[in-house]
Amino acid sequence: MTWDIFVALLAATVLAGTPLLYATMGELITERSGVLNLGVEGMMIMGAFFAFIVEYKTGNPWLATLAAGLGAACIGFLHGVVCLVFQGNQTVSGLALTIFGVGLSDYLGAPFIGQKTVGFQSFDIPLLSDIPVLGPVFFQHDPLVYLSFVLPWVVMWFFRRTSLGLALCAAGEAPEAVRAAGLNPVRMRWLGICAGAFFVGVGGAYLSLCATHLWTHNLTAGKGWIAVALVIFAFWRPRRALLGAYLFGGIMALQLRMQALGTAIPSSLMMMLPYALTILALLVSSARGKGRSAPAALGENIAPGA
């Protein structure tokens, strides 16, 4: 493999990792507040649809991105209604949300399939983009990619340095303690669900506005499920989520380039590679004792009227 191909591989890694990064970060926020939402796939594709439809009507990609986030948050809101208000099981509610979201996006989006979007165009960041290797890998993309670079640090700062972020994490670890401190843990979980869904939706927007520049069915093609797995891979830490998203995106990109260079490995085995390596990477890090357990109250509802 020559140097040029290697640099191109890294750039492709960043592009493939970006939607995963947004979705993973969203799910991570939700899970840190103690809510497991397996509906990422459904919210993500609805985000992609809202982004497309607003871009299609207004031509403004920023507005479209905002709409994608808010639209996905509305779908996530259903999860909140079922789990936070009506005490439904989070695992199943999330699954139902995925089935619902994928169906709804197909139903509403059917008349628009194949329609193109202008979306975001990539632009080079002055000076930075001229740095060898780092330039083409990180600084010759579109705005949503640049925004994703700072996202993990912003989320980390939010979790550690703001009282709201601390309360949100506490709602995931010990909701009773939050209540004892005079705050409402259910409200923190609402925040976790809606803010998380917002970023998942932006991940969807990336797909329709940047990656493909069009609307079609099956646009997410299972990326939401990968995000669910990557949150656990990241041990619920924002910066590790960045690593996970790029690792997964990188293996996907590598797999395609290995085929392009001519390999005798059957394509079915190549397709297993990212999933098998994800498990392997997890095993290695937990064997080295770097694992961190899930938020203590993850998946458990807060009983009302307590």
């Binding site: 509610s93 139902a96 949300l97 995925t98 619902f100 979201g101 994928v102 169906g103 197909d106 069915h217």
Partner: peptide, 12 residues
């Protein structure tokens, strides 16, 4: 796709 909406929403 309507089947998915129906299934998902009934479940919710």
């Amino acid at each position: 796709a309507f089947g998915g909406i129906l299934e998902g929403f009934i479940l919710l």
